[in-house]
Design a protein around this nucleic acid. Structure first.
Length: 871
DNA sequence: CCGATCACG
DNA sequence: ACGTACGTGATCGGG
């Protein structure tokens, strides 16, 4: 059997991966997409070829290199994108860690390295596979040298293979002739001029007939298109030079030692560490899982007998830290005695060799196991679980101080992730790989063990980053507050909701008819695509913006057309009504439980800024701005004997901005309870306070909002329908009025650029990796995020403190009233009528005293028989 | 499963 | 010249 070597064109593949794989960054903000794509291709090739030898070549004439596939320019070279450049040294380090030989030699093209090594190996009687994204390498194909060109097609990599015969088949010429074709046609991206007037078609035809340019030149007078004939003679020197440029040197002066390229086991400890750091979860699974985790797995024990379980419980109660996992048992063990909740197995860990998975059974029902778990939780120092709130309905812990939610901790350390699985935490904190295909018991043991073992390092990291108080004093108590709110739910009048939906439905049918009539055809009005075609093609309305997929039919576009085209007005009304019906009337109805209430979820680990999010259903976006939508709030009612109290912070974000920036003007204004928007208008538009018009005040309000969002003249101009220039002038005037704010925002961005993150008043961090981007737009986005996150995040912190305080005081005083909703700056309480005044006082005090700022925090409160009235 | 749209703060 | 406001979630249509 012939031995085989795989030769990889490093820069070419890295480049291809960079453009083929969507942008990825690890939590340190390092771009990793090219490295990831490169390694995927590498592993795919290794799996297929199983070669004895492997070498990766890099050419070293940074900052540019010759074969840049995606350079869409002529002559000049675009410098390598920063996001790609930073990945080059990393991939080299990763390859070295994998014991892969790298060959690079200053002044030599990667092609010349590949060509030379390929020739040497073929002469030794080996098979060669060259992996490159560059078709120039096709000239190297022979009977034993295969050129492999990876293509990314919809996320999947497919590889095109070329032996000499395949080149001939596809291009009509042999690999050697391929050089001459290129000499004639030229290549802009390689600075090969070629012969003017000769393109791919002509060049191929000439070479197919004459074999090379020399022979073609000898028969120049016979060449078919007269233009080619004339130009080949006229530009003969240029053709010869092109051929030299196009020819890969297979006798370059390099040292190549086959033994050094010997391909061994790439799954080294060092490589594992790199993959970990780069957060390549999928690729990590290629490493030998057994080796790293066998030790721990050997301590996993399943328990089915009550006396053994009892021993474990007794021992666990005395431990300082206990991790636990509650799981449904999807194995074939025994789901027979599973609880109504679905749980059938309790797994606890309190040491490296103390990991027990207890299965419920006839003499150990889940309810009993839950009780024992509560007892443990309340007797140890630290009781750790992932997503604790989820289990509180069955694990009825009252002593909150011991609890540690590892999901929440992981979220605080990096709030940008989509999820916080125990697998991720195990990998990041404990260097542990978990086999995806493991059985339910093994997984449960890992989950419990990770909860146990990661609590320490998560705590250390939170302390190191100044977030431990945020965790213990705000986030952990909040877990229980949110749980109480979910349990409480909110009562909804199903009948009224249904009626509301029917009213909407009737009007929608009418509108549908009218629109079809005006359009002269029927179509799906809910399809932006179809709507765009009908309005802008068939009806010839003047079209403005476009989206990637067609015409934009967004509300701001249609708004401009509505005055002139009645059909557009109908469409807008239709849109509004169908949104109300589908999302709110019909959408909410399915969430009403048998107790007549909706128990939505409040999520604590979703947002990048620290806000809470609401799902299933989203109760934080119930209509309020438009009257018709606002009416929905009438179906949200307090239970018998109760009223709603709705309390919202007045301009909390602007107040935080005043506090953080220390701007004297703004602070003074808030202390004197002035009308901030009016005052801003007066200053920005140079108008006496009492003469500010409504329009001026509205505009100033928009500027204030813009400041909080991380202002840009474009954004403001869009919002106010004014020119960018005018918007820029507003902003300039604003910053002149409030110099402290300008300074604060600049400092915040500078800090973010320096440190890579911004911080809220209570220590919450948000990383801003976009600031390192070479992309203008991304960087701008990063700057706005840096300005907004501390403000939005601090407001979230303060509201969380208030919620915990309100909930706690209501419970401690034995009141029946309950906190039931949070809408970012607003709390809704279902208050017992007897307790109304007490609760109002508690609510106002807890909210206004939640933080001690340089400006007062003011709360507006309303009561009502439903949410519509209370708001 | 993604993009467009639109509801909220 | 670039192409944008910050943060969410649900629904729909269309691949």
């Amino acid at each position: 059997m012939r031995e085989k070597i795989v030769l990889i064109d490093g820069h070419s593949i890295l480049n291809r991966a960079f453009y083929g794989v969507p942008d990825l960054t690890n939590s340190e903000g390092l771009h990793t997409n090219a490295i990831y794509g490169f390694l995927n291709i590498l592993f795919k090739i290794l799996d297929e070829e199983k070669p004895e030898y492997l070498t990766v070549t890099f050419d070293v004439h940074a900052p540019t290199f010759r074969h840049e596939m995606y350079a869409e320019y002529k002559g000049t070279r675009k410098p390598m994108a920063e996001e790609l450049r930073q990945q080059v040294p990393v991939i080299k380090e990763v390859l070295r860690a994998m014991d892969v030989e790298i060959i690079e030699k200053a002044g030599l093209e990667a092609d010349d390295l590949l060509g030379t090594i390929s020739r040497i190996c073929e002469e030794k009687g080996m098979d060669v596979a060259i992996i490159s994204g560059d078709r120039d390498t096709l000239q190297l194909a022979t009977e034993h040298v295969k050129i492999r060109i990876p293509k990314t097609k919809q996320g999947r990599t497919e590889v095109e293979d070329y032996y000499a015969s395949d080149v001939k088949e596809k291009y009509g010429v042999t690999p050697v002739e391929f050089i001459d074709v290129k000499a004639l046609m030229g290549d802009a991206s390689d600075n090969i001029p070629g012969v003017p007037g000769v393109g791919e078609k002509t060049a191929t035809k000439i070479i197919m007939e004459y074999g090379n340019i020399e022979n073609a030149y000898a028969h120049a007078s016979e060449l078919k298109p007269p233009r080619a004939s004339k130009n080949l003679q006229e530009y003969w020197d240029q053709a010869c030079m092109s051929k030299t440029l196009a020819t890969i040197n297979t006798h370059a002066d390099i040292e190549f030692h086959l033994e050094a390229a010997k391909h061994g086991d790439p799954y080294t400890k060092e490589a594992h560490d790199y993959f970990q750091k780069l957060q390549f979860k999928n690729l990590l699974s290629r490493f030998d899982v057994e080796a790293s985790s066998n030790k721990i797995e050997s301590h996993f024990k399943e328990i089915n007998e009550k006396d053994r379980a009892e021993k474990v419980f007794k021992e666990a109660e005395k431990a300082s830290t206990v991790g636990a996992a509650l799981t449904e048992d999807n194995g074939n063990v025994l789901p027979l005695f599973a609880h109504a909740s679905g749980y059938g197995r309790l797994t606890i860990a309190y040491g490296k060799d103390k990991i027990y998975s207890i299965v419920c059974g006839p003499d150990m029902e889940m309810d009993y196991l839950f009780e024992r778990l509560v007892h443990i939780a309340e007797n140890v120092q630290t009781f750790s679980m992932f997503d604790l709130k989820k289990y509180l309905p069955v694990v009825k812990i009252t002593k909150q101080e011991n609890c540690f939610d590892a999901t929440v901790a992981a979220y605080l350390l990096n709030p940008l992730k989509n999820d916080y699985t125990y697998e991720d935490v195990a990998r990041e904190q404990l260097n542990l790989m978990i086999d995806e295909k493991a059985d339910p018991m093994t997984k449960a043991c890992y989950e419990a063990y990770t909860a146990y073992a990661a609590a320490g390092s998560l705590t250390e990291k939170m302390q190191a980053e100044g977030m431990y108080h945020l965790f213990t004093d705000i986030e952990m108590p909040l877990v229980f507050t949110l749980f109480d709110m979910e349990q409480a739910g909110i009562q909804v009048e199903a009948e009224a909701l249904k009626f509301y939906g029917e009213q909407l439905g009737a009007r929608i049918v009418e509108l549908e008819k009218e629109i079809y009539e005006m359009a002269g055809e029927t179509f799906n009005i809910n399809s932006p695509k179809q709507l765009g075609v009908v309005l802008f093609d068939h009806m010839q309305l003047p079209n403005g913006k476009k989206t990637k997929t067609g015409y934009s039919t967004a509300a701001d576009v249609l708004d401009k057309l509505a005055p002139d085209y009645p059909v557009v007005e109908k469409v807008l009304e239709y849109r509004q009504l169908s949104k109300l019906k589908s999302t709110y009337a019909d959408g909410l109805a399915v969430y009403i439980s048998s107790d007549g209430r909706i128990h939505g979820k409040f999520n604590q680990t979703i947002t990048a800024t620290g806000r809470i999010s609401s799902t299933e259903p989203n109760l934080q976006n119930i209509p309020v701005r438009m009257e018709l939508g606002r009416l929905i709030r009438k179906v949200f009612v307090p239970k018998e004997g109760c009223v709603f109290i709705d309390a919202d912070y007045s301009q909390i974000e602007l107040r935080i901005l005043a506090h953080c920036s220390g701007d004297e003007q703004l602070i003074q204004a808030y202390k004197e309870a002035r009308d901030i928007h009016r005052m801003t208008a007066s200053q920005v538009f140079h108008t006496p306070f009492d003469e500010v018009t409504d329009l001026q005040r509205r505009n100033a309000k928009a500027v204030n909002f813009g400041i909080v969002y991380g202002i840009s003249s474009f954004g403001l101009s869009q919002d106010l329908s004014i020119t960018r220039k005018e918007a820029a002038q507003y902003i300039e005037n604003y910053f002149e009025t409030y110099p402290g704010i300008k300074r604060f925002l600049d400092d915040t961005v500078a800090h973010a650029k320096e440190e890579g993150y911004v911080v809220t008043l209570f220590g919450r961090r948000r990383p801003v990796p976009e600031l390192k981007s070479s992309n203008f737009m991304q960087r701008n986005f990063g700057e706005r995020v840096a300005m907004n996150a501390p403000i939005q995040g601090s407001a979230a912190d303060i509201m969380k403190i208030a919620m915990i305080g309100v909930n706690k005081e209501l419970k401690e005083k034995g009141l029946k009233s309950k906190l039931i909703l949070q809408v970012h700056d607003e709390l809704l309480i279902e208050a017992d009528k007897e307790e109304l005044e007490t609760v109002q006082e508690i609510l106002k005090r807890q909210m206004e005293q939640a933080a001690d700022l340089d400006v007062p925090l003011i709360v507006d409160m309303h009561t009502g028989e439903n949410w519509y009235e209370a708001k």
